[in-house]
């Protein structure tokens, strides 16, 4: 697919207007998974605005983002970084058609400290 087309699609799917971002970084200030991310929440917004989709498609942040939506909740400008991440993730999953988590691997991942919801949400998020 054409890169420009892809950027447009991600923008549309995320439903967020990246131009509204005033680059305050509150999303990254809030993010609980910040340290696990190579591309930070505010950079998702910045890259998509600049049309640089490759960095995002190859980012491991797609799988470390918890989808907790803290960044969306607290953005003072009504921008939704998590929605951009989600839109890019959709793009990757659709293109590659490969699941990032297998049901049979779930038991070994279960950990007392991880909420059940997280697993469910992860499953929904990382499978087609």
């Amino acid at each position: 697919m054409d890169k420009l087309e892809q950027v447009k699609l991600v923008k549309e799917r995320s439903g967020t207007d990246a131009r509204k971002c005033m680059k305050c970084g509150k999303c990254s200030g809030r993010c609980p998974a910040y340290n696990e991310m190579d591309v930070k929440p505010h950079q998702f917004v910045s890259y998509i605005e600049k049309g640089d989709i490759d960095k995002l498609l190859n980012s491991k942040s797609l799988y470390t983002c918890l989808s907790c939506f803290a960044c969306v909740e607290r953005c003072p400008r009504g921008v939704a970084p998590a929605n951009v991440i989600e839109a890019v993730r959709q793009e990757v999953i659709r293109v590659q058609g490969e699941n990032k988590i297998q049901a049979e691997k779930v038991p070994e991942m279960i950990d007392e400290t991880i909420p059940q919801q997280l697993l469910v949400s992860m499953f929904r998020k990382l499978n087609k």
Partner: peptide, 25 residues
Amino acid sequence: GMVGKVYEENGKLMVQGADLINNEQ
């Protein structure tokens, strides 16, 4: 950068925010 949250830990107010220049939290 902006502060994401303020919480208390060991009698201190922990101010967690983004440092956009150094690209770190």
